[in-house]
């Protein structure tokens, strides 16, 4: 964690009244959490309060922003859109964010390899900036590792206004054995570019929520994309082998 965001939180560090400042700095370097920020009575110092306000504004902006039109193509993905008409509808109507109209479904069917071992696609979810921040390192590394293991990977694409449960539609539509959705997480104050991978074995419209295997906190502030890719690829390998995902996969292992 040696980048600008860490610097920003360190700027609010406050050593007044601290017995061992070098210890506090060591502690702060072990976590991105807002510790060591001092206090005025039971309230925050001004610098810490202002820093928090600025970071909240950035996170709010990330949640309500759009993935720019040219980004998916630059990543080599074609684009489709769920039934949501805009960001506001996506935020309050998760039901619409899991379905596609007939035209979009036909586009997916005609553009994608049918019946792959694994279908991977990405979606904006609740954090548009996560796509450009993570996909360039994340997706090729997952794909290459799977191909290396002799697993067939479907045609990748981008879904605008995407919810995780698009997997319940995409899986049967493309007859994929495993579906892996790479999707933007709710932005936090330090990580307005995090994404998660939701992986399911033969997802279908009536599947349980706990049938997803989830890898969260993928970003340069949490699990870096390249490291996450190796883990996701090995999970997909295990899911294909055991023919189950989520809670039942875990119960199986323990």
């Amino acid at each position: 964690m040696s980048d600008d965001k860490l610097e920003r939180t360190e700027r609010a560090l406050d050593f007044s009244g601290i017995q061992a400042p070098e210890e506090l700095l060591r502690m702060k370097r072990a976590t991105p959490a807002r510790i060591g920020i001092g206090h005025v009575g039971a309230r925050y110092k001004t610098a810490a309060a202002l820093r928090f306000g600025a970071d909240h504004a950035a996170a709010n902006d990330a949640a309500f922003s759009e993935v720019p039109e040219d980004i998916p193509a630059r990543l080599g993905f074609f684009s489709v859109q769920t039934l949501c008409r805009d960001k506001a509808e996506m935020i309050t109507r998760p039901d619409l964010g899991r379905y596609f109209d007939e035209e979009q479904k036909a586009r997916i069917l005609s553009s994608c390899r049918y019946a792959p071992d694994v279908q991977i696609y990405c979606g904006d979810g609740l954090c548009a900036p996560s796509i450009a921040a993570n996909i360039p390192d994340l997706y090729p590394a997952i794909r290459d590792e799977l191909v290396f293991r002799g697993i067939s990977v479907g045609t990748p694409f981008f879904v605008r206004y995407c919810r995780v449960n698009t997997a319940r539609v995409i899986g049967p539509l493309l007859n994929a054995e495993v579906v892996c959705v790479l999707i933007g997480e709710r932005p936090g104050l330090l990580t307005s570019e995090s994404m998660s991978a939701y992986i399911a074995y033969r997802p279908h419209p009536d599947m349980q929520e706990n049938a997803y295997t989830v890898v969260s906190n993928i970003s340069r502030f949490g699990t870096p994309p390249v490291e996450a890719a190796a883990y996701i690829a090995s999970l997909i390998g295990e899911i294909l082998e055991k023919k189950k995902s989520g809670l039942s996969l875990k119960q199986n292992e323990e």
Binding site: T31, R34, A48, P187, G188, T191, N217, F221
Partner: peptide
């Protein structure tokens, strides 16, 4: 810490 959960993102 300052109300900001750096894992759960809320």
């Amino acid at each position: 810490p300052q109300g900001d959960d750096v894992m759960l993102m809320y």
